[in-house]
Amino acid sequence: MTQVELATRASTSHAALGRLERGEPSVGIGILVQVLDVLGLAAGLGQVADPDMDEVGKSLQQLKSPKRVRAKKRDDLDF
């Protein structure tokens, strides 16, 4: 498939497809999804934002979690 055919099937321009191939951040995610769909690669997009698949995010969250939790001191107990 040529770039012109891919751009036509993805309902975008040849220039936008070129920017996408170069990895320019100005290309919208919608164009990326359309191109992936035309190429038959859109099946795994549901996992992109799945927090269970984000190992780096899980590691960073564990670093932020308190290591040990202490019970708060309560001075209002009168026995």
Rank of each mutant, 00 (worst) to 15 (best):
T8F: 12
D76Y: 14
L20G: 05
L60E: 03
S13Q: 14
D52T: 10
E55Y: 09
D78W: 08
E21D: 15
R70F: 14
G30S: 11
K64L: 08
G46T: 01
T12M: 03
L77S: 10
G40T: 03
G23F: 06
G44A: 10
Q3I: 15
L39D: 05
R74D: 08
I31K: 11
L41M: 14
S11L: 10
S11W: 08
Q3M: 15
L6Q: 03
A10K: 05
V35W: 02
V33L: 15
P51D: 03
S11A: 12
M1V: 09
V27Q: 11
A71T: 13
P51F: 05
V35E: 00
R68E: 02
L36E: 02
A71G: 14
L77A: 10
V69A: 01
E24A: 00
D50E: 06
D37G: 04
G46R: 02
L32C: 06
E5P: 09
D75V: 06
K73R: 14
G28T: 11
L17I: 07
F79T: 12
K64C: 01
L20Q: 04
G18P: 01
A43Q: 15
L39R: 13
Q3A: 08
R22P: 02
L20R: 01
V48P: 04
T12W: 00
L17W: 13
E55H: 12
G23I: 03
F79G: 13
G30M: 10
L45Y: 00
L41Q: 15
E24Q: 11
Q61R: 05
R70E: 12
D52I: 02
D54E: 08
F79L: 14
V56K: 07
M1H: 05
L32T: 11
L39V: 09
A43Y: 08
T2H: 07
L77R: 13
S26W: 03
K67D: 00
D75W: 08
A10E: 02
D54S: 09
L63G: 00
M1R: 08
E24I: 04
R74L: 07
I29Y: 10
R74F: 04
M1G: 14
P66S: 03
A42V: 11
R19W: 12
D78L: 11
E5D: 15
D75I: 02
K73H: 12
D52K: 11
S13E: 13
T2F: 03
K72D: 05
V56H: 07
L36Q: 01
H14L: 11
E21T: 09
E24Y: 03
A71H: 09
V4W: 06
G57H: 05
G23E: 06
Q3E: 06
L39H: 10
L60K: 10
E24R: 14
Q34F: 01
A43S: 14
L39Q: 14
Q61K: 05
D37M: 03
E5H: 15
V69W: 00
M1W: 09
E24P: 00
R22L: 11
V56D: 03
G57S: 07
P25G: 07
V33C: 13
L36C: 01
L20E: 02
V35F: 05
L77I: 15
L32I: 15
A7P: 09
G44H: 07
G18Q: 08
G44R: 11
P66A: 04
G40W: 04
T8L: 02
A42M: 13
G57R: 06
S11Q: 15
L41W: 13
P66E: 00
Q34S: 15
D76F: 09
